[in-house]
């Protein structure tokens, strides 16, 4: 596991862009950490790092999943906040997206913990101050 401390949203995005350089089709990124921790901000950085317009990125809370294309790989951005069961997860199309040749980023991954494959990239956010975050990345080593 690698731990990073970021002091601003911009630094969080830069960290995510570094992770994006390592991503391949089929990778799954599972975010762990509550509201206002910087998950959507991190996803902006992932998109930018993949060559997708980060302006495309928005919270998928209501849509369940947003698709961002136009970059090196498509990015599928899920929010599992309201997922309560395996059936509920199935009907988000999550399992279909795993085979679609892109990167899947999952907010509230705690809610689908039992359905995540072992080789997931886990990104855990911890609040240190108003803008400071400790971000732990497991499952992928940043160069």
């Amino acid at each position: 596991m690698q731990r990073f401390i970021t002091s601003s949203a911009a630094e969080t995005e830069q960290l995510a862009s570094r992770l994006a350089q390592t991503l391949q089709a089929g990778d799954i990124i599972a975010f762990v950490g509550g509201m206002g921790m910087g998950k959507t901000c991190f996803t902006h950085g992932l998109a930018a790092g993949l060559g997708i317009d980060p302006g495309e990125v928005s919270s998928p809370t209501f849509a369940l999943v947003n698709e961002y294309r136009g970059g090196r790989l498509p990015l599928f951005h899920f929010d599992m906040y309201r997922v309560e069961s395996f059936d509920g997860l199935y009907s988000t199309g999550f399992f279909d997206y795993l085979d679609m040749g892109g990167v899947v980023a999952v907010e509230w991954s705690e809610n689908i913990h039992g359905a995540l494959p072992q080789e997931v990239i886990r990104v855990t956010f911890e609040r240190l101050g108003d803008t400071q975050r400790r971000i732990a990345i497991e499952g992928r080593v940043l160069p």
Binding site: G34, V83, E110, N111, H113, G114
Partner: peptide
């Protein structure tokens, strides 16, 4: 279990 044994939020 689907959910990690840790409550939302």
């Amino acid at each position: 279990e689907l959910k990690l044994k840790m409550q939302k939020g």
